[in-house]
Nucleic acid binder design. Structure first.
Ligand SMILES: [Mn+2]
Ligand SMILES: [Mn+2]
Ligand SMILES: [Zn+2]
Ligand SMILES: [Zn+2]
Lengths: 143, 143
DNA sequence: ACTGCAATTGAGACTAAATATCAATTAAAC
DNA sequence: GTTTAATTGATATTTAGTCTCAATTGCAGT
């Protein structure tokens, strides 16, 4: 399914459907959850059809552009991504100490955002809400 | 005023009030708006009392810890900061076509975020909400 | 199936933000 | 003034991500 959408996206842009791009796509959609480019590359490096670090980064950008993958946040270390196709929309809390990521979704907040867009004559298509702080565990071990 | 708060913070932590730290503080509070560490350093390098790049970064962290300065966002390029003392908190809508930035603040959303943090046992210290789409002007000229 | 060619790949060079090192300096407590 | 631990700054280091470019490959046209 995501495969079909990607093929469509690639062909629409006049690009080529390479085995490396498919390798990245398949690796991402072989599991659920958040991931960093480097980790993704390490997995692909040891898989059947490999792709270089450069290709992983390049394909990742294409996937974000296609809407199949989303950039969750930019942490101290780097970017964090997740598959978005077939996933419920949600936002994130990120622990500044251990990097733990908590997912949440508030329909009330979503509605208020829509309201604010209307009030500002803004045609909102996407949003990104990240709350930072300390997770339950790290809050206890503070200082 | 911010000067006094900083002195207090420094002395409470058993640190030293150096001319370099004061130089960074004063430079930041000499203007309003967002800034990047490198730009700040370049300004300080040419000012009366100088400070090295290392000291600028180190002092910036202290200022964030003290609450006088806030980390606005982590962009592709690096961190963006702003003075928070005496400033109203707000979030942003960004136009994907022309880059226009609309600032807004919703106390209702803020409250809902606090609620969600409590529910998740998360000690939230900051948040970042960006809504993307088309601004009033670009919505009209669509495609 | 063959050809032509622009798009793509990958190894490694490169960039730049941020941190670490450490000898020399300095704030401040006594 | 003396003492001492904190601080500074020049420089080295780290590292996520981009860039380069010769070799390769997907694919449109025949
Ligand atoms: Mn998520
Ligand atoms: Mn806000
Ligand atoms: Zn944590
Ligand atoms: Zn616009």
């Amino acid at each position: 399914m995501e495969n079909k959408i990607f093929r469509n996206f690639i062909s629409n842009k006049g690009l080529k459907l390479t085995k490396e791009r498919l390798a990245v796509l398949n690796e991402i959609f072989s599991f659920r959850g958040h991931f960093e480019p480097e980790q993704l590359y390490l997995r692909i490096k040891d898989s059947e059809i490999k792709a270089s670090r450069a290709s992983v980064y390049r394909t990742l950008n294409l996937l974000v552009e296609s809407g199949l993958v989303g950039k969750v946040a930019r942490t101290e270390k780097g970017n964090v991504y997740e598959q978005t196709f077939g996933q419920e929309h949600h936002d994130h809390m990120i622990c500044d100490r251990c990097g733990a990521i908590i997912e949440f979704c508030s329909q009330k907040i979503e509605n208020l955002q829509d309201e604010l867009c209307k009030k500002n004559n803004f045609d909102g298509t996407s949003h990104n809400l990240v709350i930072r702080g300390l997770c339950k565990k790290c809050k206890r071990t503070k200082r």
